[in-house]
């Protein structure tokens, strides 16, 4: 078995990462989901919890699935994909939508990451490369305004570099904004003392995670 295939078989896959994050979305939460793996979280929120999804382009009450008969090119999410609205949904303009975000009315936002630092700094919009077209969207507003920021990300980059680091080398999206990180290997909190292990994915050893983390990982309960 090749090293890559071996690596892929360890820990949680994308669906399982989304499913694990969904466990931490409480009943009654107003939630904004970023593009990519975070979008999948909506499919896994445990039954019996009522969660309202916000999309920053002007809809509160986005459905997790596209309902037949509701297709409209002018009913889309922040990723510009067609979505549906639940009964009880509301539409609003962009300034109101970001008042919900900036004003602290959204409870949880789930985003992807390029790097997260041990102080909770997030880099997820630019590598700083001079050739790239910079594009930020609503990420900086979300991390500045939403009460709790969850990150779903692979523990390392495709080339094996740690994404959880002492300090971010990429341009920041926000400083000291991340609460909890769900990776393919573990669930990790950002605490005043640094990264703290909450849970290991099944079959993953603590040392395996530590070797792939760019700074100290507190794991007092695993010693």
């Amino acid at each position: 078995m090749s090293a890559i295939a071996l690596a892929a078989s360890i820990g949680w896959d994308r669906e399982q990462m989304a499913s694990r994050a969904a466990l931490d979305i409480p009943d009654g939460a107003y939630v904004n989901l970023g593009i990519g793996i975070p979008e999948k979280v909506a499919q896994y929120v445990p039954e019996g919890r009522e969660v309202i999804y916000h999309t920053e382009n002007g809809l509160l009450g986005m459905s997790a699935t596209l309902e037949a008969g509701q297709e409209d090119p002018e009913l889309i999410n922040a990723g510009k994909k067609q979505v549906s609205a639940i009964p009880g949904a509301a539409y609003f303009h962009h300034a109101d939508s970001f008042a919900m975000i900036r004003g602290g009315h959204i409870d949880i936002c789930v985003l992807g990451a390029m790097q997260v630092s041990q102080t909770g700094d997030l880099a997820n919009w630019s590598t700083g490369s001079v050739d790239a077209i910079p594009a930020v969207g609503g990420a900086m507003d979300l991390v500045a305004g939403v009460k709790t920021i969850y990150i779903i990300t692979q523990h390392c980059t495709r080339t094996g570099e740690p994404k959880l680091v002492g300090s971010c080398s990429f341009p920041l999206t926000g400083k000291a904004v991340v609460s909890r990180i769900f990776t393919d290997l573990a669930v990790i909190d950002v605490t005043p003392q640094g990264f703290k292990l909450v849970e290991l994915a099944p079959g993953v050893e603590l040392d395996y995670v530590r070797q792939r983390t760019g700074c100290e990982l507190i794991a007092d309960d695993w010693q």
Binding site: E56, H94, F98, R102, A139
Partner: peptide, 12 residues
């Protein structure tokens, strides 16, 4: 380049 919410609020 302007963050989306800042763009909206600048216009408002």
């Amino acid at each position: 380049l302007v963050p989306q919410g800042t763009l909206a609020e600048r216009i408002r």
